[in-house]
Amino acid sequence: MAEIYAAALINGLLIGGVYALVALGLTLIYGVLHIVNFAHGSLLMVAMFAAWLMAEKAGVHPYAALPVVALAMFALGWLLYRYVIGRVSRGEDRAILLATLGVAVVLDNVFLTLFGGDTRQIESDLTFAVIEAGPLLLSVPKVIAFAVSLLLAGALWAFMALTDTGRAIRAVAKEPEGARLMGIRPERIFALAYGIGIGCLGAAGCLLLPSFFVSPHVGNVFVLVAFTIVVLGGMGSFPGAVVGGLLIGVTESLGGLWLGESLGPIGISLVFIAVLLFRPTGLFGAAR
């Protein structure tokens, strides 16, 4: 039995890494725009379809496609904010929220029209590749996703802390009016931040596809988990997203073992509620 617990723990960590990947973009967008991006799941779906199309139609492995897909998703996010969300909402919080909902409805149905509602997957040499760690077999695609999500979190953190653009984003996040006086145009920064957040989803989509599936509804599978991680880690915090992701992965994994896989998913929601009620700033969040 101890072996099963060890396996569940390690497996939970691996899954958590993947969750963190989806949550990174969400936490960035929340941190800067202070809105919950309800189009996040749909945009993840778009990224996964992009990766799937590259693999299926052009024979490009998702890992090779990652830079292209991430850039394309950055562009899509930037355009969406610049020409749809920003314009429609005029920067008003409630309207941004509605606008992201509207974008989600449109995207889901565009892909449903284009690809139908079926579940698709790819099978490559890597699909079954495992690393043997004692009695455990660790899925290579999951290990890769885990490693890249840590790298990406580090890179984002460094970008925000060390570059001028990063500093500008942080300035806008904290004090949009003050930043405006400094000559920064908040609307541009919002579009940039949204673009980067969605670009992260591009990477997430490519890393997820080899160990998952894609359908026009795949985003729903991850969205609540991503929200939970962002809240748990502290809205706007990258280290928070990673630690939150790992904690949630482990909670789900062990919760499934103790409560049964049927009742197990409730663990995530309970953690979510408990954090909101008792420590709404999350583990790494600044005071509100």
């Binding site: 509207g102 974008v103 989600a104 409805v105 449109v106 149905n109 026009p216």
Partner: peptide, 15 residues
């Protein structure tokens, strides 16, 4: 899927 897509667009316009 086409109709709900249109619905979403109209939604954005109203907002």
């Amino acid at each position: 899927g086409f109709a709900p897509m249109l619905y979403g667009v109209v939604l954005l316009v109203i907002i």
